[in-house]
Simulated assay, not measured.
Amino acid sequence: MFEFFEFFAGGGMVRAGLGVQNWRCRFANDFDHKKSAIYRANWGEGQLRTADIKTLSSKDLDGQVDLAWASFPCQDLSLAGGGAGLKGDRSGTFWPFWDLMKQLISENRAPKIIALENVCGTLTSHQGKDFAAICSTFEQAGYTFGALVIDAAHFVPQSRPRLFIIGVRDGEAIPGALIQDAPSPLWHSRGLLTAHENTPLRGRRNWVWWSLPEPDPRNQVFADLIEDDPADVDWHTPAKTRGLLDMMSEVNRAKVDAAKRSKRCQVGAIYKRTRVDADGIKVQRAEVRFDDVAGCLRTPAGGSSRQLILVVQGQKVRSRLISGRETARLMGLPDEYQLPTNYNEAYHLAGDGVVVPVVRHLAEHLFEPILRQWPTAAKVAA
């Protein structure tokens, strides 16, 4: 049985991805009381501490674990954020997390694996300096590390690329099959390659290119996850649906017309975005996609950040907000997972989470092979 710490735990989606068969949570932390209530509703009492990570010390962390996972806040690293990066109030919580890791290292309780997850904006934040700073923390701590960009669309019908930085403690065994000589187009994006090249050599001396197998083809499309009669949102009136269509550009209206002519029910995902028209005037547009994949879920900071769906069957067109259960399904959560009863809270929980099958893929093909190999195999040099 492997053991882990889960920081910035939210509703426990990392815990869901690791699974209860091979993994046991020793400690979890989140500062949000509403998310903590859902975590406890699904995972029980005992492991979760609801507190600001800045108030924690190594005394709160019992024993030595195989994995420490941190999905620290993305707001200051997001391309839509204010650009504060790791100096921001939210994304800057990476540093108190790393202080905890340094305390564990000094006490000879260093986690065998440390995994970070965040938005891909981390790669370009402050002209790549924030990514380089994270690399330096792993290098200075003596961890062999590398990064991957994984789009959840390989596993669930949601476009959601995320950055994963994974380090293995110096001296731990790394099976040779888990490291490749060169980056892979599937897992190492152009943005990651650029960030790696721009990181000073001293910050990537322990860098490796992690190797993951290609996942099986996804067997679901967006329409498979849609509820006919959701409990928390209502279908729009015909007038409101017409208003939504009127907000579309010619290009997006053409997509709807093509969906009407098709011989199957199609479900489109819509976000409202502010665009500049031909006269230089800012207008709000409804932009739709019919590629069987939802847009990336975001936290509902405003009306424009809530995703809508457009169901087209022949000449019949209906629209509404995406439901809370649908957002959970897009994150790979089972229907028995308990959600908040409040719509915005359910949406926020999902939009802030980690896609469950992505975590499982990492656990099955990277974490668990490393941990099962240790300490019998020799470490593969970076």
Rank of each mutant, 00 (worst) to 15 (best):
G88K: 01
I38R: 08
A68D: 08
A51Y: 15
A70P: 14
P157I: 00
L100M: 11
S78F: 07
S36E: 10
Y143F: 04
A110R: 03
P111E: 03
G63N: 05
D52H: 14
F94E: 09
N22S: 11
R162D: 09
K59I: 01
W69R: 00
A37Q: 15
S58L: 02
F145V: 02
F164Y: 10
A153C: 09
W43M: 04
V65F: 02
E107V: 02
L116V: 04
F94Y: 14
V149W: 07
A41V: 04
A147G: 01
L67R: 00
T144I: 01
L61F: 01
P161V: 04
D99T: 13
V149M: 08
E107Q: 15
S78Q: 10
F131M: 15
F27S: 10
A110C: 01
A133K: 15
I114M: 05
I114F: 03
E107Y: 11
E117M: 08
V149S: 09
R49C: 14
L104N: 01
Y143T: 04
G167W: 11
I105P: 00
N108L: 05
G63H: 07
I53H: 04
A80V: 05
A152K: 03
R160T: 14
G63K: 10
K34M: 08
I113T: 12
S58F: 01
A37E: 15
D32H: 08
F155V: 10
I53L: 12
F27E: 07
G142E: 12
F131Y: 15
G44D: 08
S106W: 09
A133W: 07
K87F: 00
F155P: 02
I165V: 13
T124M: 13
S125F: 08
A84Y: 05
G92W: 13
D52N: 15
W43A: 06
E45F: 01
S57W: 07
P157C: 06
K59Q: 09
Y39V: 07
C135I: 02
M101K: 05
V156D: 06
A84Q: 11
L77G: 04
S125Y: 08
G167V: 10
G142Y: 13
S36A: 13
D30N: 07
G82T: 09
H33W: 10
S58Q: 06
G46Y: 02
E117T: 09
N42T: 05
